[in-house]
Design a protein around this nucleic acid. Structure first.
Lengths: 111, 111
DNA sequence: TCACTATATGAAGACTTCTTCAAGTCATGT
DNA sequence: ACATGACTTGAAGAAGTCTTCATATAGTGA
């Protein structure tokens, strides 16, 4: 309480605002992954991956558990899937709008 | 198209990652607003508001038109509403998770 | 216990984003 | 033409985020 919702929302979106973190969430949306599995899919340094996982952990978007020698991550809020889908839809919409606009620019006199 | 989708998505979420921009989108999701109307609702300096509107314009999330002496903004992608709702749902979920956890901390020995 | 692999953390410089200030544009009424 | 109100823009320092490096910790098997 105290912190206004729009502030919290902004912080939330900011934690999604990084390519590696998006990829992590997309992979975890499919199924749980150990850190070394994420590392195979995402081309960044291990310590950088760890940092990004830490960001996601801080906001409780993911949780980790140790399994023997590996650490396995999973999404803690399944609704994140909807959000990522929503975002994709919006981006596709924006891309279309933009390319229509570019068409007009390319063929300006054609009705 | 060159730029990978997760990169584009990250940029998109980053443009949502600011309290003023969230408020702007929420207000515009209700109805179109002139800049001076936004200014009444959002407590920031006019030039700051303008900067934030510029960010939203650059990503084509909003469009502006001049109406006489005023400039009126509107949302260009209606799906943004779903996204904001999705986000709210997730945040509520997270808040609940966290407060359950805090309950455990406060009453640790009680089953 | 030691060496090894898997992962996390702290710190620092590079880089980006914010806020504010000063100055600029654009319509309107006089 | 000018003054005014409504907004925008560019620049600059402050504040925040990224990436990398060095170091730390936790299991595992020899």
């Amino acid at each position: 309480m105290g912190v206004p919702l729009y502030q919290t929302k902004a912080e939330f979106f900011r934690t999604l605002g990084h390519p590696a973190r998006i990829r992590i969430l997309e992979l975890l949306a499919e199924r749980d992954h150990a850190v070394h599995e994420l590392l195979e899919q995402i081309a960044i340094e291990p310590s950088n991956l760890s940092q990004q996982l830490a960001v996601l952990r801080r906001t409780s978007l993911v949780v980790s558990r140790r399994e023997g020698t590996a650490v396995v991550y999973s999404i803690s809020v399944p609704e994140v899937r909807d959000l990522l889908l929503s975002a994709r839809r919006i981006l596709v919409g924006l891309a279309e709008t933009r390319s229509e606009f570019e068409d007009e620019l390319m063929v300006p006199d054609r009705r």
